[in-house]
């Protein structure tokens, strides 16, 4: 259990909000209606795929800092149906539901 004071909690909340919202708002406030160069637009089209894949891959492929490509890796196994259902149905909720059901089943058996 931690022993933070009310002031420290408030500093944490304010600090987290500021460092997060600066990233969210800066492009909106600074760039405004300026046109972006074509190369930049092309680059930006690929950013979401990159960010999402970079955020997910270590969570699926690694276990306690080690590469785990074994069938005992329930996240890796569940990732396959989640991706396939999402790709073919383009239905976010369905693919999330399938993924969570598969993980729960894999742990039960």
């Amino acid at each position: 259990m931690n022993s933070w004071t009310s002031t420290e909690w408030i500093l944490l909340l304010a600090g987290m909000a500021v460092v997060t919202q600066v990233s969210r708002l800066m492009p909106v406030l600074v760039l405004g209606k300026k046109k972006l160069p074509m190369q930049f637009s092309q680059f930006v089209r690929f950013v979401p795929s990159a960010v999402l894949a970079a955020a997910i891959a270590p969570a699926i492929l690694l276990h306690q800092g080690q590469l785990n490509m074994h069938v005992s890796n329930s996240f890796l196994l569940a990732a396959i149906p989640t991706l396939l259902v999402g790709y073919f149905s383009k239905n976010l909720l369905l693919s999330v539901a399938v993924g969570m059901i598969v993980v729960t089943l894999l742990r039960a058996y």
Partner: peptide, 24 residues
Amino acid sequence: FALVALLLGVLSCQVSNRFQFAVA
């Protein structure tokens, strides 16, 4: 697994062609 599943679902809806796939 909920967060991972959510991100996976979003990614699979996002990847629309072979270029996006290569980036992922």
